[in-house]
Simulated scan of single mutants.
Amino acid sequence: METGIATTPFGRRPMSLAMLAAQNESREIPKGRVVDKWQVYRNLCEGKSIIAIGDRALAVLNALLSFYPDSELSEENGIIVFPSNAQLSLRAHGMPDSTLRRNLAELVDCGLVIRRDSPNGKRYARKGRGGEIEEAFGFSLAPLLARAQEFEAAAERVRADNRALRLMRERITLHRRDIQKLVEAAVEEDVPGDWGGLWRRFRAVVETIPRRARTAELEPIVADLAALRDD
C-alpha cells in the first residue's frame, strides 16, 4: 500500500532530493504492472556495476524480498515489507546490526527501496477487521517495480559487454597461438625472414596485455596481433 504523500525518515535520518525523486518515480508505476521479484533481483545482481550497488547491500535486499509473500511484485498485492532488524539479520546470514543498517541505508540512497517510517520509527502493519492490511510501515519495494525495465537493460548491457570481452580474449588467444606456431615452423624449416625481430615485436605486444581489462583496452592489442600475424 502506498500513499501520495512524501514520507520522510524517522528521527535524525536526513531527507534527500534523491529519496524524494525515488518516491516520485514510484508513483508513476503503470497500472497493472507485475514483475517477478527474483528476476528483478537477478537483473540487479548482473547489472550491479551500472546501478552502483554493492554485494552486501544486495544480500540485504535478498533478505527483504524474502519477506514479500508473493513471487510477483505488484501494487495490488501491496509492496511494503516490515521485518525487524533482528529478523532481517537472520535472513542475511547473521549480518551484524551495524552492517545491516549501513547496507539498508545504501539501498535507500540508491533508490532501490523507500523507507516508510511509522510515527515511532517501528515497522509494522495495521490490519482491518477482516484481517487485511490497511496500512504498513517499513520498506517499500515500489522502486523495484518502477525501475524493473531499467534493471533489465543494465543486466543486458553487462551481458553484452562480457560477450564482447570474451570474444576479444578468444581472438587474442588464437592470434598468439597462430603467431607462435608460424614463427616456430618458419625457424625450423629455415624460411628466409627476420623471425627474431618478429618474435620480439610479438612478445612486446603480449607483455602489454593486462590481466584484467575492458574490451576497449583489448581492441588495439587484437589489431596489433592481427597485423603481426599477417606479416
Rank of each mutant, 00 (worst) to 15 (best):
F10L: 09
G11T: 07
G11W: 12
L17K: 10
A18Q: 14
A21E: 07
Q23N: 07
R27T: 04
V34C: 07
V34G: 07
V35Y: 00
K37W: 00
Y41I: 03
L44Y: 00
C45V: 08
G47C: 03
S49V: 06
I51Y: 00
G54D: 07
G54V: 07
L58M: 11
V60M: 03
A63W: 09
L64V: 04
S66Y: 05
S71Q: 09
E76W: 10
I80K: 04
I80C: 09
I80Y: 03
N85I: 02
Q87T: 11
S89E: 10
R91K: 15
G94C: 09
T99C: 15
R102F: 07
N103M: 01
L104Y: 10
L107Q: 02
D109E: 10
L112Y: 00
R115Y: 06
N120D: 13
R126W: 12
G130V: 02
E134Q: 15
L141A: 08
L141D: 03
L144A: 02
L145V: 01
A148S: 11
A148L: 00
F151W: 00
R157F: 05
V158K: 02
A160D: 04
R163F: 05
A164D: 00
R166S: 15
M168K: 06
M168Y: 12
E170W: 08
R176N: 09
R176I: 11
R177A: 13
Q180N: 11
V183A: 09
V183M: 12
V187H: 04
D190M: 07
V191A: 11
D194G: 01
G196I: 04
F202V: 03
R203V: 04
R203T: 15
V206K: 01
R212A: 15
E217W: 00
P220M: 04
R229G: 10
R229I: 14
